[in-house]
């Protein structure tokens, strides 16, 4: 069982650190005009972080979370979306396929 005093300290610390992480960029940069090169970097942050989030979400720490049905479900999402279906329909198709595979394969 977790020590309650330790738990509350941990929650407070993580909350403050998260606040600081989110605040630093906007507070320091404010409305400063950035050079074009910096904007080029910032413009690429979204695709880079999305690709990174996708990889670490699927793989997990040391690739321990890699999961076959999840990969097939994700491929289904991509295929349905690329056939011009709406986003939510693509996700629904992916979750259904993932759930069915787990049901059949256990």
């Amino acid at each position: 069982m977790v020590n309650q005093a330790h738990l509350w300290w941990a929650i407070i610390c993580v909350a403050l650190i998260s606040f600081a992480f989110k605040a630093v960029g906007p507070a320091v940069l404010a409305d400063r005009q950035l050079p074009a090169a910096a904007r080029g970097v910032i413009a690429l942050l979204a695709p880079v972080l999305l690709a990174g989030l996708l990889v670490v979400d699927m793989g997990g720490p040391r690739w321990t979370a890699l999961n076959g049905p999840l990969l097939i479900g994700l491929a289904t999402v991509a295929a349905v979306r690329l056939s011009r279906a709406p986003m939510l329909l693509a996700i629904l198709a992916g979750t259904t396929v993932t759930a069915l595979i787990r049901l059949v394969w256990g």
Partner: peptide, 15 residues
């Protein structure tokens, strides 16, 4: 299959 929802969102937005 709901653990697929977040990676699926990331994938769709990445596409």
């Amino acid at each position: 299959g709901l653990d697929l929802v977040f990676p699926a969102f990331f994938l769709l937005l990445l596409l």
